[in-house]
Simulated scan of single mutants.
Amino acid sequence: MGTPLGDFIRARRDSIQPDSLGLPDHGRRRSPGLRRSDLAARAGISVEYLTRIEQGRDRNPSTAVINALADALSLSPSERDHLRYVAKITGGECSAHERPAAPHRDVRPSVMETLRLLEPGIAVVTNRLGDILARTSGYEMLMDGTGLLEGDTPNLTRHVFTDPGARTFFADWDDVADEQAFDLWLAPSVENSEWFTAELAPVAGPDFTRRLNRHVVPRRGVLRINHPSGHELRLLRETLELSTDAQQLLVLLPADEETARNIDRLRSRPSGRLRALS
């Protein structure tokens, strides 16, 4: 049985062409990418040990080994962070027989005050499962007509993968889907993520499940939106991690003057008010 650590290392190894690391191409092989023997040699570990890690038979490699693998795979800083994270949760994995408690939905008063100061800007507080916990009127304006905010417990991840309209609303739907699936690795707890994944997979289908173990760190570039009003929006994203709460505050800003004008047009319509969902 695989582990998050083994899956990530194998996925990165399969994505690397030997010539990109100055290694000779040994011709046809059974799988794409870097040979296990080449990676082991670059990391200074045995092939047998690397095999145990990739297959989940060794769940607690040392920090030195993790760093050596990061160097051998030429990981970017964000990919190194993810490698350390999956190594941590792999070492601490346990099987849960009962559904874990849901992550708390309360937003601290100081965070709510920050949202108020951001009005009428576009801002939202979420957790890594995609639960929308609080938002400004600007965010309600942005999502008006999408169906995302309907119901008592709106969830962006579920919306992206199960609402057909999301594929039109998000101009780069594939990138947004990659981001939402990747963020499940950073959910309030491993157990929460596993239960959410198990519930979402049957209704979301292969577009969701094939992304779960890819471990491709998203680029999170400009967010392009086809708003139901007919306006095209390009938005920059600034994220503040609320680590003590396992939440994040996301602020969306116009990426160009045309987007700023279109947002002003949207704001000229009747707007909502700041809302927190507990």
Rank of each mutant, 00 (worst) to 15 (best):
T209R: 10
A101P: 00
N213V: 07
V176W: 06
E54V: 13
P202Q: 09
N127F: 04
P18D: 09
R42Y: 02
Q180D: 07
S95P: 00
V203Q: 11
S15V: 10
D183A: 12
Q180C: 14
G91R: 06
T209H: 11
R269V: 13
R99Y: 04
A41N: 04
A276Y: 02
S229C: 09
L21M: 06
A123D: 04
R214E: 15
D256E: 10
I45R: 02
L277W: 10
E119F: 09
G165E: 04
T114Y: 04
E119D: 15
L50P: 04
V160M: 04
I16T: 14
P218I: 03
W195C: 06
E179R: 05
R211D: 08
L212I: 13
L240T: 14
P61T: 05
A43R: 02
E79G: 00
T153L: 08
E140Q: 15
R57V: 09
P4S: 11
A11N: 03
L274M: 15
M143T: 07
V86K: 02
E98Y: 06
K88D: 12
A68D: 12
P218T: 02
G205R: 06
T168H: 12
R158D: 09
P164M: 05
L242T: 06
I132A: 08
A204T: 04
T157A: 09
F8G: 01
L277E: 06
A68K: 01
V47L: 08
L252I: 08
L23K: 00
E258D: 15
Y139D: 08
S137P: 00
P32Y: 11
A177S: 08
A201W: 07
S74Q: 13
R128N: 15
V190T: 13
T136V: 07
T63Y: 06
R267E: 11
G91A: 11
L253I: 12
R237E: 13
E257Q: 12
G151M: 04
T259I: 08
R128C: 14
G56K: 03
L142N: 09
A177N: 03
P103K: 03
A181C: 11
T114L: 13
H231A: 13
L252D: 07
A276W: 02
S137T: 10
D256Y: 12
H227V: 06
E199Y: 03
N60E: 14
R52I: 13
M141C: 10
D207C: 05
A43W: 07
N262T: 07
I66L: 14
L73V: 01
R158A: 11
E54W: 12
L133I: 03
D174N: 13
R128M: 15
L115A: 02
L149M: 12
D152M: 07
L242V: 06
I263F: 03
E93Q: 14
D172C: 01
I89T: 15
G230W: 08
P270R: 01
P4D: 10
S278G: 14
Q180P: 01
G91H: 05
M112T: 11
D25Y: 00
L118F: 00
S193K: 04
P32K: 02
L184D: 06
D81S: 10
P61K: 01
E232T: 13
A41K: 01
D58F: 09
L23H: 01
Y139T: 03
Y85D: 10
E98A: 11
R35I: 13
D163M: 09
G165W: 03
E119M: 11
L223K: 15
D144P: 00
R237A: 11
S76R: 14
D152S: 14
P24E: 13
A198E: 14
V107F: 04
M143R: 04
A276I: 05
L5E: 13
T197C: 12
